[in-house]
């Protein structure tokens, strides 16, 4: 499979991981065996790390809280930001960590069952890590769009059923 098709394959899976190999093959004008091989290779090389559903957690009862935390750190000789990032991302409360350009360095997303849990995590775990020089915590109130998907309820069909 050529590299352009590999990228298309990844986009299709990202959009809907439940497409069958046969469907993917049809959409890409490839053989199912080729698709299977390309997926296996992507999994092997950890380009594909897993498959998950896009969930609107706001609609799920009893779901906890999410906070986005800006973290400023002093980078360390030789290892830069990586060693500190590693110390942070190993906590199970941490959903994602990314190195950012701009006013702060690491963007950390944390989930907890209560506001208090997150606050405690930040003050007791995160802020106390060596080389962390400051944090700013933002609680997530509502998700409108994530990963390209708009969370609003679907717009209804406005076209006429039959048209020339």
């Amino acid at each position: 499979m050529d590299s352009e098709k590999r990228i298309k394959l990844l986009h299709l899976l990202h959009e809907n991981a439940k497409y069958t190999d046969e469907m993917l093959a049809t959409l890409l004008d490839e053989e199912p065996a080729e698709v299977r091989a390309a997926i296996a290779e992507a999994e092997q090389s950890r380009v594909i790390l897993g498959y998950s559903a896009i969930v609107n957690w706001d609609k799920v009862e009893g779901n906890g809280v999410t906070a986005v935390i800006d973290v400023r750190v002093t980078p360390q000789r030789e290892v830069g930001f990586d060693a500190i990032a590693r110390r942070i991302y190993r906590f199970s409360e941490v959903k994602s960590v990314a190195l950012m350009s701009g006013a702060y360095d690491l963007q950390v997303v944390v989930e907890g069952s209560h506001l208090r849990d997150v606050a405690t995590f930040v003050s007791e775990r995160l802020a106390t890590i060596e080389h962390v020089t400051g944090t700013a915590t933002h609680f997530l109130l509502k998700t409108y769009k994530a990963d390209g998907v708009i969370f609003d309820d679907r717009e209804d069909e406005k076209r006429l059923v039959v048209a020339p």
Binding site: R159, L160, V161, V162, A163
Partner: peptide, 11 residues
């Protein structure tokens, strides 16, 4: 509950 393949305009 009609699925329309009869529409001549983009979805």
């Amino acid at each position: 509950d009609v699925i329309s393949l009869g529409v001549g305009e983009p979805d």
